[in-house]
């Protein structure tokens, strides 16, 4: 069954060096290539022999019913989980088993399903933590605020302010994150991820629990990020309408297996996908 889906996928992937989307954006080479990933927790198989790739500049969605292993997949990419089998290739190189912080330093930023922000810090401080890997001057110079350290801080601060403007959260810059409503927290988390100027941005259910208006805002931001910064984005989302509108290609998972992969239209008409979402009629 998987072969069938794969064959289906390859039909629109005969262009080895990327493709052009319907709205005219150019999608480049493979940036992240996941090869036969298998992840087990004790006896439970969370991901079973899944392969797919993420191309430079595209918005790639991972969808599937609850418990399909989508978040586990994202955690494999961001280094929070280490798969038992399979290889992760990034920028044409096989990635050794890295710690999450090392993955982050490679230019892969992420947000979490349940929001992981520094609740005690202000919005500005939270976003500033995204710049930690851009601070190179010594700790002594930083303590006493000397020349290079001071310039560096100013430059980082400027970048952070740009992102804050971009995501329209200027009015809450100095507010401690703990006091913010859910929707805004999600946006601050996106801001912090963007502050790291990632090549690949992983979003775990960026629109979960939002109302229609907030969802529209978030969709707009995701498209703008992709468009203006050229950031490659992989996201997990439950809202089908959103997924179909946003993404260039979609991976569908069910019970830890890949059951579909292709453009939104292809996936929508895939029988297995329809069965996984709506159930198979009894015969």
């Amino acid at each position: 069954m998987i072969e069938a889906a794969e064959k289906h996928m390859h039909q629109n992937e005969d262009l080895t060096s990327g493709y052009t989307t319907a709205d005219g954006r150019r999608i480049g080479d493979v940036m992240m290539d996941l090869k036969s990933i298998t992840l087990r927790f004790g006896g439970v198989v969370a991901i079973q022999d899944i392969s797919f790739d993420i191309r430079q500049g595209e918005i790639r969605a991972i969808i599937g019913p609850n418990g399909a292993g989508k978040s586990s997949m994202l955690n494999v990419i961001s280094g929070f989980y280490v798969p038992q089998e399979g290889e992760v290739w990034f920028r044409g190189k096989k990635r050794p088993s890295l710690k999450p912080y090392q993955v982050a330093q490679q230019g892969i930023a992420r947000t979490f399903q349940n929001i992981a922000l520094f609740e005690g810090m202000t919005v500005l401080d939270n976003v500033m933590t995204g710049r930690l890997n851009f601070m190179k001057s010594g700790w002594l110079a930083q303590t006493i605020w000397l020349g290079k350290a001071s310039r560096e801080e100013t430059a980082n601060r400027q970048k952070v302010e740009e992102i804050i403007d971009f995501l329209e959260i200027q009015s809450i810059r100095k507010t401690p994150v703990g006091r913010l409503p859910y929707g805004l927290k999600k946006r601050v988390e996106l801001a912090r991820a963007l502050a790291a100027e990632p090549e690949l941005l992983l979003l775990d259910e960026p629109m979960a629990g939002m109302n229609v208006e907030e969802k529209e805002d978030m969709s707009r931001f995701i498209l703008d990020v992709n468009d203006e910064f050229g950031t490659t984005i992989a996201l997990i989302e439950h809202d089908m309408g959103v997924v179909m509108d946003l993404s260039d290609r979609v991976v569908v998972m069910d019970y830890g297996k890949k059951i579909g992969d292709g453009t939104p239209d292809e996936v929508r008409n895939n029988e297995q996908v329809i069965a996984a979402y709506l159930g198979v009629p009894n015969e």
């Binding site: 961001s78 947000t111 992981a116 520094f118 005690g120 933590t129 995204g130 991820a193």
Partner: peptide
């Protein structure tokens, strides 16, 4: 005022978030 200090406060606040911004616990 320092990167390490900021990272320290980040770790004190939330381990998972700290990892995701590239801090080694």
């Amino acid at each position: 005022f320092t990167k390490q200090g900021r990272a320290m406060r980040a770790v004190a606040d939330d381990h998972q978030a700290a990892l995701s911004v590239g801090i080694s616990l």
